[in-house]
């Protein structure tokens, strides 16, 4: 199982447009990707409601996990996505 920790770079947090872009990217990996606050229960990263309900704000850390072929590459690309200010783009 691949795991990554990343800090939310979007100024509005993982919400609205940033959340939608992240969920779209997670869905496109075709893998079972999960996202969690450190030490808490993970939620399905392809569920926009689940992702938004995390309430992850700017500067907070989240943990991504995925299983299967290409999991490492998939998570690297999702980490790169969350490291940008998606609301400003």
């Amino acid at each position: 199982m691949a795991t990554r920790t990343v800090t939310i770079a979007s100024s509005v947090g993982l919400h609205a447009r940033p959340a939608a872009l992240f969920v779209e990217a997670a869905t496109n990996t075709g893998l079972d990707v999960e996202i969690a606050r450190p030490g808490e229960d993970p939620v399905d990263a392809t569920s926009i409601l689940g992702v938004m309900a995390l309430g992850a704000k700017f500067g907070e850390e989240v943990v991504l996990t995925a299983d299967g072929d290409g999991a490492d590459d998939a998570l690297d690309s999702l980490v790169a996505l969350l490291s940008r200010d998606l609301d400003a783009e």
Binding site: A16, R17, A19, A20, D44, T46, S47, I48, L49, G50
Partner: peptide, 16 residues
């Protein structure tokens, strides 16, 4: 467009 697309994602949410 962005608002409507994000709202469509909500409708298709597996959790919901």
């Amino acid at each position: 467009q962005q608002i409507l697309k994000a709202t469509a994602l909500i409708a298709r949410d597996r959790g919901l």
